[in-house]
Design a protein around this nucleic acid. Structure first.
Lengths: 145, 145
DNA sequence: TTGCAACAATTAACATGTTAAGGAAGTGAC
DNA sequence: GTCACTTCCTTAACATGTTAATTGTTGCAA
């Protein structure tokens, strides 16, 4: 049975889009003054958290596809927020590192970003927030062990 | 306190992206043979469920921004999957309707799409699935009454 | 060593997301 | 009626998502 599609009002893909839209709106607003995009912010955050890493790891941790990352890395490099270096042992590979200028962007906005997150935790309630993260992780093909 | 950003591993925006990626992968695979995209599928589904409607309502129900919808509607019209008509009383407004060819695309794949949804329900468990939808709806700015 | 498969990264091509600006049609104050 | 204002939709410009093709390297095997 269940040959019928669920109503679009209870569609999981659509619900994910709308939730994401709700989450990102205040974050995009915060970022608008910096001139960097949401994805660029994400890359900087990953680099800030884990330090220098190769492109493949960076793409994985940032949840970005390679072609996107190529463009984003080029943009961030032009802005002086990251630096790229070739692996001398394997010249196919490349390493990316956040620069002091890039780290500054993170540092100056970490408090405000944390406030936004706190706001959503308050909206949902702490337990619901953790539950939500757990459920979302169950849908992540990369996280299913 | 909590001036520190959460680890990107427990970041809600990133978790939403990854979950969406996990959900959409099999759906995109299903759609690949049709030549229509995920968003075009979404528009057709909304039109199939609710019937003819004006562009504003369609954008709202499809969770698409107006500029995107303009392009998508033009694409679908060129493919003969929807038809557009001007409102004669208010010539700014426009109505969109699914064509038989468009409806056929939905009908031919409704069963397979429903199977995919059923699969995710099984992965999460029915109660978790409903909980997830409820929590996501709490983050949707358009749904907070 | 040469040839080829595998790999990392880029580029290309097209669709969408996002913001801003533009154009056309309706509305209301005067 | 006219002018400002609003509304609906489109266009523009740029960044990203997505898939496929391409380039440059490496490793391995005939």
């Amino acid at each position: 049975m269940s040959k019928n599609l669920p109503s679009t009002a209870r569609s999981l893909p659509i619900a994910l889009i709308r939730a994401r839209e709700g989450i990102m709106a205040p974050i995009r607003e915060m970022l608008s003054e910096t001139g960097i995009t949401e994805q660029q912010w994400r890359v900087l955050r990953v680099l800030s958290e884990f330090g220098v890493m190769d492109t493949k790891t960076l793409a994985d941790r940032s949840s970005l596809l390679f072609p996107s990352l190529t463009r984003i890395a080029a943009t961030l490099r032009d802005k002086g927020l990251v630096s790229q270096t070739r692996d001398e042992k394997d010249r196919r590979r490349q390493f990316v590192e956040i620069t002091p200028a890039g780290q500054l962007i993170i540092d100056e906005r970490a408090a405000r970003a944390a406030e936004i997150v706190t706001g959503f935790k308050a909206t949902l309630g702490h337990d619901n927030y953790e539950t939500l993260l757990d459920l979302l992780e169950m849908l992540d093909p990369g996280a299913r062990t």
